[in-house]
Design a protein around this nucleic acid. Structure first.
Length: 259
DNA sequence: ATTGTGGCCTGCCCGC
DNA sequence: TGCGGGCAGGCCACAA
């Protein structure tokens, strides 16, 4: 469940390797390489090149290498390990143990040490020159006006739209539920039904929730996280939370105050 | 075009 | 006790 908050931690962790020279990359399973460029292209694009910068857009971590870019996607269970350290030991829905066959990608530096991706379920991938324009504005920086554009004229449910990385990037299932719970908005609402005042609320809830959960240390430490289960109770008003599937993801919300 | 669904894959938990 | 089914959710291919 690496969402924007976790990937931002990965970015900071990877930043320690900026300025190093890449001596080799290892990809135990070729299916982990996504896109049109093959292994040869990846190797020649990285060999003896410098890691110039590390950026993030949504859940995509971007390594600028020489004059190329390499995108890292972590799927549900992907962790970044830099110089043998990972900023997140415990990830929801997966084990903290590092198994050899879960190592999906290793970048070795001439200066020593390495940057690696560990991903038990293998839903993540890497891609040379990922198309960053496919991603909507980053949720951590999205403006009120951009949010309006992302949601307007859509019949999709609010929840599904917030999960759509092309419209707004970086939010995953847990963050979405927390954001909507805090904003008091029903996740099943069609986007186009939102009033201006409600969009204001949503925009500030996105900002606030990301800030608070970043301080707490992850997407999984929201106020309703412990209640995302059968007979879970709304921490605000004590109502029993409802559950349904929206955008293909399990959604929990409070029928009392989320309207 | 837009929106919804299923499947990828592994590990954990629950019930029989 | 041990096993198997269900579930977790990021993302893509595909369906309606």
């Amino acid at each position: 469940m690496p969402e924007l908050i976790e990937v931002e931690l990965y970015r900071k962790s990877a930043a320690r390797a900026v300025g190093r020279t890449i001596s080799s990359v290892t990809l135990p399973n070729l299916t982990y390489l996504k896109g049109t460029q093959g292994l040869d292209a990846l190797q020649s694009a990285t060999h003896n090149q410098n890691l110039n910068q590390v950026r993030r857009k949504g859940k995509l971590l971007i390594l600028d290498i020489g004059d190329r870019s390499l995108g890292l996607r972590f799927g549900m269970t992907g962790r970044l390990v830099v110089d043998g350290k990972t900023p997140i030991e415990r990830l929801l829905y997966t084990t903290p143990k590092v198994q050899r066959n879960h190592i999906r990608f290793v970048m070795t530096f001439a200066q020593g040490s390495e940057l690696a991706m560990v991903d038990p379920r293998g839903f993540g991938n890497i891609e040379l020159q990922p198309d960053e324009t496919k991603l909507g504005p980053d949720a951590a920086n999205i403006s009120r006006q951009e949010l309006g554009v992302s949601l307007k004229n859509s019949n999709a449910t609010l929840k599904a739209r917030l999960l759509n990385q092309q419209k707004i990037s970086g939010l995953g299932n847990l963050l979405c539920d927390e954001i909507l719970w805090r904003a008091g908005l029903d996740p099943r609402r069609p986007c186009r039904s939102l009033k201006e005042r409600e969009l204001d609320l949503l925009a500030s809830s996105i900002k606030r929730t990301i800030k608070v959960l970043t301080q707490r240390g992850g997407s999984h430490v929201g106020d309703i996280q412990d209640q995302r289960r059968k007979t879970g109770i709304c921490p605000k008003d004590g109502s029993e939370l409802h559950r349904c599937s929206l955008g293909g993801r399990t959604t929990w919300w409070c029928p009392e105050h989320q309207r």
